[in-house]
Write a protein that binds this DNA or RNA. Structure first.
Length: 268
DNA sequence: GCACATGTTCTCGG
DNA sequence: CCCGAGAACATGTG
């Protein structure tokens, strides 16, 4: 579910329910791949913690607590983070009961999501690997980094080490807006073309945040409602449908083991 | 049974 | 070290 716009939408809503409140009870499911920090340790570390700030870097949420501890949250492919009690089906892995009757639930069917506790002062290899966040990155810098790679431009856009936050939907949408074919080698873009790609991609990310992200299957906002940006997609999931600019059919290919959608006429 | 799914990470060749 | 292909992780839907 989660690319930058979805995670940012969840962050904004969760922040309102969580900041200044204290965790009074922690419920977890059984140990699994999902828990980087074991449920047992998570319970003891999180109990009594008061949230001071909720940040986002790329697709990661970073909860900061009084005293300097941090909780890292990643939604994987099917993660749902909501500011309410969910029916406790087998896919609800973490429930935080907060002061003033607030509840935060984390549900994730495929368990590709991650929860990790970071002790005060401890750094995180996961976070340290990430490039600058796609919304705040210096565009000239990202353009230079992109053009150093020989891989297809779409594969480069998806590389979280170059800039963090873009996933399969917004890479396809950004390249369509820029008129660049996803298979084109990143190195063969001019500086101007690369700048054009990341400028368009970033404005699409911002627009998607305004619409609360894209709901395709599992993603819901923290208030339980659906995102709206899926109604504005131009190419993602549109194989065979007419291109909004030229009318020719959108094609689908596979790149880096992911589906890539584009217009073979408009994107050179 | 088969194909596919908004993500990340690792391995194996070249 | 770079790159691509494929697999793994776990589960659901069409």
């Amino acid at each position: 579910m989660p690319e930058l716009p979805e995670v940012e939408t969840v962050r904004r809503q969760l922040e309102k329910a969580w900041i200044g409140r204290t965790i009074v009870h922690v419920h977890t499911s059984l140990p699994s791949y999902f828990f980087v920090t074991s449920p047992r340790v998570l319970k003891s570390r999180l109990s009594g913690q008061t949230l001071t700030r909720l940040d986002r870097h790329g697709k990661y949420l970073i909860a900061h607590f009084l005293g300097g501890g941090r909780l890292l949250l990643h939604l994987g492919m099917t993660g749902q983070l909501v500011a309410r009690q969910l029916v406790l089906d087998p896919h609800v892995h973490l429930v935080l009961s907060l002061s003033k009757e607030q509840i935060i639930s984390f549900r994730d069917v495929r368990k590709f999501g991650k929860v990790e506790w970071l002790a005060p002062g401890k750094c995180s290899p996961r976070l340290d690997k990430l490039g600058p966040d796609a919304l705040s990155a210096d565009l000239e810098f990202v353009s230079r980094r992109l053009r150093q790679r020989t891989i297809p431009i779409k594969t480069a856009l998806l590389d979280q080490k170059i800039w963090a936050g873009v996933g399969n939907i917004y890479a396809d949408e950004g390249l369509f807006a820029a008129g660049v074919r996803p298979t084109k080698s990143a190195r063969r873009l001019t500086h101007k073309e690369a700048l054009n790609v990341i400028t368009h991609t970033r404005s699409i990310l911002l627009r998607a945040v305004e619409h609360g992200g894209s709901t395709i299957n599992d993603y819901i906002k923290a208030d339980g409602t659906l995102g709206g940006y899926q109604n504005w997609h131009q190419v993602y999931g549109k194989e065979g449908e007419p291109c909004s600019r030229c009318g020719k059919a959108i094609v689908r290919t596979v790149l880096a083991a992911r589906a890539a959608h584009f217009c073979a006429f408009c994107q050179k």
